[in-house]
Amino acid sequence: MKEYKEYMDRIRVDESQHERFLKAMREAESAAAAPTQEKKKIFRLSPRVYRTGGIVAAAVLALVLLFGPALSGRQKTENPAGPDLMPADSAVYTAAPIADYSGKNTEKTPEAAPLEESDQIAASQASLQAGATRNSSEPEKNANQKTESLSPMPVSAAADFCIVAQNTNENQPLKTEEEELLLEWMEKGILKAVFADLAEDGVLNCLICDSEGNSYAFDLSAADAEEEKAVREFLADHGLTLAE
C-alpha cells in the first residue's frame, strides 16, 4: 500500500481550483446573507407548514386509535363486561391474539379475555412495541447462534491444503473477530489460502481441506488463542505442516 499512499499524496488541489472553491463559497455566503425574496417566502410558509403538520399528526393519531387494534390483527371476542367498540361481526377483528406478536404465543386463543377501550389502546401500543422488539432482537439472536462444529465431510477435490471460509447462514452477521483472526492468520502465513465468498452479512465458518479432498469445519464464532491452538493441533494430527 506504500505506492498507493504515495500516489494519493500527489492528488492535490491546485491554486486555480482553490480560488474557484473560495469564490464559490464567498458568493454563496453573500447570497445567503442578503435578505432575498426566497428567504421571506420560506419564513411566511413556516407557520402553515407547522399547522398542516399538526393537522396531519392529529389525523394519524385518530386513525391509529380507531383502527390500531384492527391493524394489529387482534381477535375480537365477546365482551360481557361492557359494550363492543366494533360491530360483533366485524371481519377485521378475527385475527390472532396479541400474544402472537411477541412471538411467545403462536396459538390462537378464541377464549381471550375481553378488553376495555383503554386496554385496547395499551395493548395496541404493546403489540407495536413487541413487533419492534422482535425485529430489532432477531439479528442479535441470530448473531448469538453458534454453528455446530462439523465432522469431516466431502468437498470438491482440493489440490492443496487450504482453508475455506463459507457463509452457512445469510442471516447471521459476520463477526469481526472471526474475520480479523482469519486475516491475521493469512498475514502471518499460517493459512495457505482462504477462499471466502462472504455475503455482506454472512457468518464466517472455516473449512480446512486436506490434499485428499476431505474438509473439516470449524466454528470460528468464538475464535481466540484456544481456537487457533485447536486448529494447529488438528492440522498436526493430520500431518499437515503450517507455513510460519
Binding site: 459476520l174 463477526k175 469481526t176 486475516l183 462472504l198
Partner: peptide, 14 residues
C-alpha cells in the same frame, strides 16, 4: 454495517 465494510475491504484486498 461494519461487517459490510470489512467484507468490502477483504474483497478489495483479495
Amino acid at each position: 454495517e461494519e461487517s459490510t465494510v470489512r467484507s468490502w475491504m477483504l474483497r478489495g484486498r483479495r
